[in-house]
Design a protein around this nucleic acid. Structure first.
Lengths: 360, 360
DNA sequence: AGCGGTCGTTGAAACGATTCACCACCACCC
DNA sequence: GGGTGGTGGTGAATCGTTTCAACGACCGCT
């Protein structure tokens, strides 16, 4: 069953050439004579020879892998980011080592050790804490690092993030343009940077429209899930004046608000408009398709990986960049005042994307 | 910035010992005298020495990584499985290299090459095709392979899967127990094994209850998404007699059915009961919380990784095993006939689990 | 014939850690 | 003093590949 491993030396002796020639066939086939090359390739095939990457990399000094450290792959955000990273790495012939820090600094640190021992070409990371001695150290020792979904505070490193303030602005600007007077923001806890920035964007949009930011009815939630959304909607329903438009810090909250409003007989979007954030698959598939702010997650991952690869390949001529992507507003029925005044449009079903290619 | 890499040799000369001793400090610290050990450890710290895994593995003959090849990590099913794999690998001190085959045999093959070159300890894979020459070859050359979410046809390999027939049986048995007479199955296309097996389970449950399997009203869909579910519901609404219970091949279909039924004024669960499959996060958070069949996804990944590690570690005494997990029925409002006849229970909110820990 | 230039191939020296046979040293005891 | 044992450390060989100086063969040119 377990045949002895076959090395370049075995190939060489079978083909009647030196190991150097075999290596040339593998790496610079053009400089080897046609006949020799064929003999070597035949031997490789017959013996089932497979290159040993460890040996290659020992010589090269670094491996053909990059590390990806995220808070949790089970989170759809990171899932899409990971896809982007992988696609990009794949194009460059690199493998991706995936690590979940679970928001735990100790676990993060262990994974960084592991990646450094693997001599990865570079590391993409959403660090648990903002300042991180281990990361500094890694960078000093020559491992390129790119921050994911975090903005670098100085220009000694690359980072890739999405502009959450703009996202909040887009949402509220849209609601104001629809003629809404009484707006609410639902989100929390405010210790989360994203929640804060999205609210900040909402306030900016108010100001820009000449409205008093104090008019924004803020409902702080204890979490970012559907249940919290339902609670928030219950609180909003009793408010005077009742807001006619609600911007939620994420889609789960928005779905909760939608459910509770519907249950209370408040019609969406006729009586109240709702805008969510993240554009998760279910936003489009909800009972009332949800307007939402979409982040270019796949692109985020892709770009981060490209920056990393560039930094790892370029010979110290690399210019660090802090890329910030703009999110995009996807308008659907939940915030569309024209609904009901004209025939219901069946948009080209976006939920096709929500299909599970694998049904399990 | 880029300091020269520091090797075990540098450590040795700084500590005034031989490289062998440094290696001993790293691998068998107990056989080194206290004083020497401390001197070596100090040198390691001062120089910032980091072991080179490539070199270790070149000697060892295999690396401390395992490969995970799935159809698509963006699919929540595989996301959870991947988490399980990673947790397990982490316990064993192994790193996971993540690969998406995208259901493309060519891409799968490329990744298998890459993993073999990395001399991974083993590979966990959901193969695109059922028979796969590359996999045979890999196994013959000594790389342990464990099939994920596929049942091995012979006992020359390990596999880990979930019993889809039983899942279908559980769903329909439950609906029959609730006293439903007219049942429907919604799912498709039937080329998908999971769809087929879930239907088969449904039929078995009918037979076991002494019912004519022909009574099951089957609606084949073209896809497994929300839109297809809505279409199926439209078709069901016109059927005579109209089924009072619908079992859907996955949750997206079920949510589509739920939406369309509600839109048509058909009340769930009063007029029609619905059972889905997969227990995705949104099942619990839907307008009417959805009864669903839950698969132990995390456990699936964990177990697969454990089998793989066992096979890779044990010295040929390994017994191949085909593990099949049983799914579990999670009953919620959508199939609960008692709803409305008694005060609405707010169950301990399961959608807490649906929170995005990372809000982005 | 002698020279310079290609072309194709060779062989050995790296890369960095591990392993193992072997040695130096000391202690102890007959 | 010579044998025995134990402790602690050494140094060379090894893993499989890449790289590069060097070399032989051959050709064309003077």
């Amino acid at each position: 069953m377990n045949r002895p491993p076959v090395s370049i030396r075995d190939v060489a002796s079978m083909a009647g050439v030196s190991v150097g020639t075999v290596s040339n066939v593998l790496n610079r086939p053009d400089i080897v004579a046609e006949a020799t090359r064929r003999r070597v390739l035949d031997a490789i095939r017959d013996l089932g020879f497979v290159r040993n990457e460890s040996a290659r990399h020992l010589r090269a000094g670094h491996s053909r892998t990059i590390g990806l450290v995220v808070l949790d792959v089970a989170n759809p955000f990171f899932t899409d980011v990971a896809r982007g990273v992988e696609d990009s790495a794949n194009d460059a012939g690199l493998a991706v080592i995936l690590c979940n820090s679970d928001d735990d600094p100790a676990k993060e640190s262990r994974y960084l050790d592991l990646l450094e021992e693997q001599r990865v070409q570079g590391i993409l990371i959403t660090p648990v804490a903002t300042t991180n001695h281990r990361l500094e150290q890694l960078r000093e020792r020559g491992t390129p690092i790119v921050l994911l979904d975090r903005r670098a505070t100085d220009d000694t490193q690359c980072s890739v993030a999405v502009n959450d303030v703009l996202g909040g602005e887009l949402a509220v600007r849209h609601l104001l343009a629809q003629g809404h007077e009484h707006l609410a923001f639902v989100g929390g806890p405010f210790t989360i940077r994203q929640v804060q920035e999205r609210q900040q964007g909402a306030l900016q949009a108010m100001r820009a429209a000449g409205r008093d930011p104090g008019d924004l009815h803020v409902v702080e939630t204890s979490a970012l899930n559907v249940a919290a959304g339902r609670d928030a909607a219950a609180r909003l329903a009793g408010a005077m004046p009742r807001p006619t438009a609600v911007f939620c810090a994420n889609d789960l909250l928005a779905l909760g608000v939608l459910q509770e409003m519907t249950r209370r007989g408040v019609r969406v979007p006729h009586d109240v408009a709702i805008v969510g954030y993240d554009d998760i698959d279910f936003a489009a598939a909800a009972a009332v398709p949800l307007t939402s702010v979409r982040q270019p997650r796949h692109l985020l991952g892709r770009t981060a990986a490209e920056l990393l690869i560039e930094e790892a390949t370029e010979d110290s001529s690399h210019q660090h960049r802090q890329v910030v992507f703009d999110p995009e507003l996807v308008v659907r029925d939940s915030s569309d005042r024209t609904i009901g005044r004209r025939p219901r449009r069946r948009r080209p079903s976006p939920e096709g994307a929500a299909a599970t290619p694998h049904p399990a």
